[in-house]
Design a protein around this nucleic acid. Structure first.
Lengths: 353, 353
DNA sequence: GTCCTAGGGTGTTACGTATAACCCACCGCG
DNA sequence: CGCGGTGGGTTATACGTAACACCCTAGGAC
């Protein structure tokens, strides 16, 4: 009479229950269900174990398994925000590769947004096998590695500045955003634009610094061009305000706006319309990311597609390589320009219709 | 010489190490760090334990803790897709409340997208305390509850159809989307619209069925109105195609398009422009959700704001209530219309400029 | 002086799994 | 007839934590 026969609530069957039902020992259950029974357990026994497990609805207790094995086969993905579909793509890609290797991925949107009560990352560290940080600022990444005294977790950084003291347990996977910017500028130059303003995200992060540098380099390489830069808060309104400043500045007007992000580009399009300018008739606009927003706008946005899922997938692969002490390549993922309706030659005659 | 002094790699300090460093037993460490030492351990001892833990960089092993406590203080959030910022909001809200109660939230975008290799949810069930499913189809939710033989996990459904066999361990939190639709229709009617087409998401889910019914009810309540419905795939292109069909149908044209989602509304705006119609001059357009997309469009979208974070937060609260066997209310969250530039009286004279 | 109590800890066990180390019966072979 | 091998299992243990059930000492009451 120690306990009710049918477990009252949440009393999940254990491997011991399965063993009893199948008339074998717990060890045998573990062997069979763990797939390591070749030549150690008779076929008939294995079958009856599997049947018993099925009948009881047995699922192994992951906490116990993790404790035993000393690892969790789980990676943490840290992203700046989840309200951006780009990071949804990164997660999806990482989770796909993880699943193929029996790993799980836990998502952690970085501090802002989540209450300060007991940093979930902090308490989770002990049960994680590795960390993937996407587009994080350097100091935030430093904090992730923990007190440095204990076991520093393997860390993969996506689209982030390289760590100064990068240990051996670190890898990086980046988009080739510099090349993306180069493609944008070449596209515009080939259309005939010579006076181009960069609407630059006012965020201190690797990916945006690279874009600024690449923009300056690409423009500087061609004589007779006029480059300018206008900082913008990373919102639609921020893009709108920056574009408005750029387009109303005294002197000859820029004929093209290169925006650091599709969000900013959406704002730039709004600003142009408010000023009575047509896109792309009077001013061409480009973005970055190729969010679904890019095709929702009218005209559709010429933008640089960043393969977010690919980034997440490669990041997870790199982490797995790190964990298995395999050699790893740190690829620079190619990106490509998607040319749509928001760019056209400058001062073109109004479209036929 | 059994092992190197400084743990070679990943050898995290345990509570036993802390105990040795502080000169106490492991049990005392557990008491102190667990906060249950009031009147059982002297202040001085507690302090030295904490100092030792700090010095060693000790973090409790969650796998062990979970095994011991039989729970993980972790909930699973299942969403249809992560590439939609709405669900990012749901997650954020749920995670905030969870953190306040020492809970964590694991995100699981439902099957499509994630490889089929060993369903992560399936293997995770044993280590979860509950499930929150957002906007899921009925059959998918059924599957979540598992083989029904073992312990069925507490389940909270957000914006979903009520389960037919809802057990005691189930709760529901919904947006009052019917009221949202009513507000939209009343807004348009008060502007003078009488011929309105509902661009309806062709997705078999509770939230969209409710919208369709509410639209028909609100229109049916006012004599002299003409309601129509046009199904649309839940993408920009789907919305565009549906709106095009709706606006080119023979007979008097609808003066307003009520879209089930901001994404669809964006497509509808594109369709209108392609047909040479101005928004809102010739046709008014409304959306649902109030995504950032809504303010990125030009004109900005009149839409119904669904408080996604609030939904996630209330869902998590409901789950916590379920777990603690507390009475719970199943609120119907109020939503409200955000009136912007995409709606105006029908057949209005062209705007001044 | 003896008993009781409270304060301050410690020993021990259990959680569920994986696996190393055994164990035993049976069969074929010399 | 004895002996080694092998197929088919079992027993025992460890993972790190939490907490129950003790234990010991000292101080006060009688």
């Amino acid at each position: 009479m120690r306990s009710t026969r049918t477990a009252p609530r949440g009393a999940r069957p254990t491997s011991k229950d399965v063993a009893r039902a199948a008339g074998v020992s717990q060890a045998t259950v573990s062997l069979v269900l763990g797939g390591k029974w070749q030549g150690r357990v008779a076929e008939r026994t294995a079958v009856s174990v599997r049947e018993a497990a099925q009948a009881l609805g047995y699922r192994p207790n992951l906490a116990a398994r993790n404790l035993r094995l000393g690892g969790t086969r789980t990676a943490l993905l840290v992203v700046p925000a989840l309200t951006n579909e780009f990071f949804g793509g990164v997660y999806t890609g990482a989770a796909r590769v993880a699943a193929e290797h029996g790993f799980g991925v836990v998502l952690y949107p970085s501090p802002e947004g989540i209450g300060p009560a007991r940093d979930p990352f902090d308490s989770a560290r002990a049960t994680l096998d590795g960390v993937i940080a996407s587009s994080m600022a350097a100091e935030a990444v430093e904090a992730l590695r923990g007190p440095a005294g204990g076991g520093a977790l393997p860390l993969v950084m996506l689209d982030s500045a390289p760590l100064p003291d990068a240990g051996e347990l670190t890898a990086a996977v980046n988009h080739d955003v510099a090349d993306g910017m180069r493609q944008v500028v070449e596209h515009l130059l080939s259309l005939g634009h010579r006076r181009i303003t960069h609407v630059a995200a006012a965020v201190d992060s690797w990916t945006f610094r690279v874009r600024e540098d690449a923009f300056a380099a690409a423009m500087g390489a061609v004589p007779g061009t006029h480059a300018a830069s206008e900082p913008a808060a990373l919102t639609v309104m921020g893009g709108q305000a920056a574009a408005e400043r750029a387009l109303t500045r005294p002197g000859p007007r820029a004929t093209a706006l290169v925006c650091d992000d599709d969000i900013l580009a959406a704002g730039a399009c709004k600003a142009a319309r408010r000023l009575g300018l047509s896109v792309p008739g009077d001013v061409s606009v480009t973005g970055f990311d190729d969010l679904s927003l890019a095709t929702a706008l009218d005209p559709e946005l010429t933008t640089v597609r960043l393969p977010a899922q690919e980034l997440g997938a490669r990041g997870m692969s790199a982490l797995l390589a790190l964990l298995e002490a395999r050699p790893l390549d740190e690829p620079r993922l190619p990106v490509h320009l998607v040319s749509r309706g928001s760019t056209a030659p400058p001062s073109a005659p109004a479209p036929p219709d």
